[in-house]
Design a protein around this nucleic acid. Structure first.
Lengths: 180, 180
DNA sequence: ATATCCATGTAACTTGTTACATGATTTG
DNA sequence: CAAATCATGTAACAAGTTACATGGATAT
């Protein structure tokens, strides 16, 4: 399932501009499916050229004009077809883990700083998801809530693991300092 | 930290061919830092052009000849420098979660099949990591073990979440079938 | 005063994967 | 007898990000 199909899926909930689609995605699927204007706008153009969406230009005063997209019946069919296809494998890449992997070669204290920074990021993402959870509890589908819960357990378990990691690194660096 | 630096890190443990480096990476960092020959061989070429590694060609009979790479002192410096740099943010993308997100629109049963397939993949990865854990327990550094444990908790928590997901989807599809 | 929101879009760049090409030897 | 292992490499392709370009209105 590529970005174009995801965009179709979001347009199924109502007409949107590229700008609004990005915001919608960030709030809901942002933590497992990132996107940027550099990919959204060209994707929308493609969809239009393929007749899967239609555009309506809305002139605004005080704000830039906008292009509101609406999904077509062909677009709906295309989306349905994509949904039945098997999803490609997840992709995950972590430079942080790579730094930890080579941690022994790191200068004293530097690794702990990185762990601390990483923890901050994870905490921030978890906090944001918890806010979203409250905001959407009554309007989201059960399927959407399950995705959200995935994010919750993902960040929570990472955070627990980080506790253990910090303790162990501290011990290791202590031992190092005392001449072992 | 890009692939070139990672390769330098692995060459620090001893001379290796591109082929061996790929195997090493798969076993240890594969679940959070993938790679393919299409990226490894060009990366090794780059490293050689930059003087960060040296090559020695070994003629073999019955097997293809191989190129054994060795890290140079400049390579070691370059690797150290990279280790001190802050790691880029993790990247994670899951088409499976996107399918779940739009799950309500799925044809009956299709979503459960996807969940089941996904579970199989996660179980396979977890099983492999558990094998690796036993294999390397006595030779890996504590830092390497922490990375491995991350993988363990990641797949375990995903699997627990999947239990819940399956139950809930079954209930939802039941309700759907009975005319609700 | 400064930053953020609104809103769209392009071009250059990065980074990677997949498929192709080759081919003897060993394992099941 | 088929498949996997060993071993390297390139070319085509995919998919994305970042930076740039523009600029008024509103919030802090």
């Amino acid at each position: 399932m590529n970005l174009r199909s995801v965009l179709l899926g979001f347009l199924l909930r109502g007409d949107r501009t590229g700008y609004e689609l990005k915001k919608d995605m960030e709030e809901s699927v942002g933590f497992f499916f990132g996107s940027s204007y550099g990919s959204i706008y060209p994707a929308l153009k493609d969809l239009e050229a393929s007749g899967l969406v239609e555009v309506r230009e809305v002139v605004q005063s005080g704000k830039p004009n906008k292009k509101v997209y609406r999904i077509t019946p062909e677009g709906e069919k295309s989306f349905q077809a994509q949904l039945e296809e098997s999803p490609a494998a997840d992709s995950f890449r972590s430079e942080f883990l790579m730094h930890l992997f080579f941690g022994g070669q790191q200068e004293g204290g530097r690794l702990l700083d990185m762990v601390s920074d990483y923890r901050g990021l994870q905490e921030g993402k978890l906090a944001r998801l918890r806010e979203v959870e409250v905001e959407v509890r009554d309007i989201a589908t059960p399927y959407e809530m399950m995705c959200l819960e995935y994010g919750l357990i993902k960040f929570e378990s990472t955070l627990h693991w980080l506790d253990e990691v910090e303790k162990r690194i501290r011990k290791l660096e202590q031992g190092e300092g005392s001449g072992l």
